[in-house]
């Protein structure tokens, strides 16, 4: 599918960002983003440091609520429902829209307890052992840990810990998985494993991934959004969306010069 426009019918929109700006107190961190995120695709957010891609990602499951003074203007909808509507429970949002962090962050509990944590707090009625195995299998970690499920999650290697965190996110049965530079703390081999995993997971989940690594974006994503930052009159830097398209278009034939400069490494 080289250079062909719309090779298949446009898939369903899961997350829709309409003219969103994100503020910390009076400081605007991201301005006027409009983009759609499609079901069962991997969408990569790329761009230089401080361009607001992680900030935007954290707005998708309202993790930014935890930052005092953070607020969103404009609209972010999930299957048409405004995520920031008054009657939306952020706890429920985070269950449906899971998140994997930059640094692997297993709880200081056993592997077993880590994976079933979400199921426990969400009063999951089914079979925990089955949930555990399916989640760990999907995260490609089952074979490595099946004999030591009671060991601490912290005893695993960095790459294993990150896959444990992915398994933990999967076990809450989310619809969307957000990944905030999931490989930046990992070695190349672990990175490759996570990337393979993302390919597998795409069949069942919608994935949004923030990455610094452009090769990674080309390897894993279907669509790519390129963000950049510009100085404001107040001397702050505000992030904005430069271009959003199929990954092949962004990397081979971008419409904006800034995108071309960035993906070809002639940036800054």
């Amino acid at each position: 599918m080289i250079m062909t426009r719309n090779p298949q019918p446009t898939p369903k929109v899961v997350l829709q960002v309409q003219n969103a700006s994100i503020f910390y107190g009076s400081f605007r961190a991201v301005r006027d983003v409009t983009m759609d995120i499609y079901a069962n695709e991997v969408t990569a957010l790329i761009g230089p440091s401080g361009c607001g891609k992680s900030t935007l990602l954290r707005c998708f499951n309202r993790m930014n609520d935890l930052v005092p003074g953070a607020r969103v203007e404009g609209k972010i909808t999930y299957h048409g429902k405004d995520l920031y509507a008054r009657d939306v429970d952020p706890v429920e949002v985070r269950r449906r829209i899971g998140m994997v962090f930059q640094k692997p962050n297993p709880f200081p509990k056993s592997i077993y307890d880590n994976v079933v944590f979400g199921a426990r707090v969400n009063k999951y009625k089914g079979d925990f052992d089955e949930l555990l195995e399916t989640s760990l299998r999907q995260a490609a970690l089952w074979d490595e840990v099946k004999d030591k499920l009671q060991e601490s999650g912290l005893s695993l290697s960095g790459g294993q810990q990150q896959r444990l965190c992915i398994a933990r996110a999967i076990a809450t049965k989310p619809d969307v998985i957000l990944m905030d530079e999931p490989c930046s703390a990992l070695d190349p081999i672990s990175t490759l494993k996570i990337e393979e995993l993302i390919h597998e997971l795409k069949q069942n989940y919608t994935i949004v991934i923030v990455t610094h690594n452009m090769q990674q974006a080309t390897r894993v994503s279907d669509r790519t959004a390129f963000f950049n930052a510009e100085a404001t009159e107040q001397g702050n830097r505000v992030g904005y969306l430069v271009e959003y398209d199929h990954t092949s278009v962004i990397f081979n034939n971008p419409k904006q010069k800034a995108t071309m400069d960035y993906v070809s490494g002639r940036f800054g």
């Binding site: 999930y78 299957h79 048409g80 429902k81 995520l83 509507a85 009657d87 939306v88 429970d89 706890v91 429920e92 949002v93 449906r96 707090v121 009063k123 089914g126 079979d127 089955e130 949930l131 399916t134 989640s135 999907q138 999967i170 076990a171 049965k173 989310p174 619809d175 069942n204 989940y205």
Partner: peptide, 26 residues
Amino acid sequence: MTDISQPHTPDTTNDQFRKIWTSPRN
């Protein structure tokens, strides 16, 4: 319904995230 290889399919109603203050957790 324990097959989790199928992800959660969101219902299309807009009530899905309503904060239910009377739920036991809240």
